[in-house]
């Protein structure tokens, strides 16, 4: 089986760029540690409160160190539980200063949800029985919408939250 000369050039060029491309992705993944969210920790979906992070009083934003925050969230149809404020009201916006490192930990007691903070790299599937975690640095200020991007039922499109990054 003979390859035509031009086809050889074309394929060498194509496979070459493929190799470069994979090398870049591999470099970013294994040297820089940029993996997609792949947290491996299970939880009982019918009893998420049993986990320290998802106790009602631990939900929402907490500063764990200077400039470092953790946000614990329970995603359920059709709502993100971001905890309660001092007055006992539902929190609907997470506010963090610019440049802070934020770890998002999300789980669900019911069906599969999505968790995407539009305009950032935070985009994870949230599945019953698993905890999804992603740490990111909020570099830009502004308002970012948290959307549920996996179909979870008739109220799916009403499931959202907000992250506000201020100076």
């Amino acid at each position: 089986m003979n390859l035509h000369k031009y086809e050889k050039i074309w394929l060498i060029f194509g496979i070459g760029s493929l190799a470069v491309f994979l090398a870049v992705i591999g470099f970013a993944a294994f040297w820089k540690g940029t993996h997609p969210q792949s947290h491996i920790e299970t939880i009982d979906p019918q009893n998420v409160e049993a986990h320290e992070a998802f106790k009602p009083e631990n939900l929402g934003l907490r500063e764990v160190a200077d400039g470092k925050y953790t946000v614990n969230i329970i995603a359920s149809a059709f709502n993100y539980d971001l905890g309660k404020d001092e007055n006992g009201n539902r929190v609907d916006t997470i506010r963090v200063p610019r440049g802070s490192t934020v770890l998002f930990q999300v789980t669900t007691p019911d069906v599969v949800h999505g968790f995407q903070i539009a305009g950032t790299n935070v985009n994870m599937m949230v599945e019953p029985g698993h905890i999804s975690r992603y740490e990111t640095v909020m570099k830009n200020n502004g308002e970012f919408t948290i959307v549920c991007n996996e179909y979870c039922g008739i109220g799916h499109h009403l499931m959202f939250g907000k992250v506000e990054v201020y100076d």
């Binding site: 609907d92 999505g114 995407q116 539009a118 305009g119 308002e143 970012f144 919408t145 959307v147 549920c148 991007n149 996996e150 179909y151 799916h156 499109h157 009403l158 959202f160 939250g161 907000k162």
Partner: peptide, 17 residues
């Protein structure tokens, strides 16, 4: 820009985004 797939019309929280 971050618009989700398989979603009914929603203004979410509103806002410029």
């Amino acid at each position: 820009l971050g618009g989700p797939r398989r979603s009914n019309f929603s203004e979410y929280a509103g806002g410029a985004q």
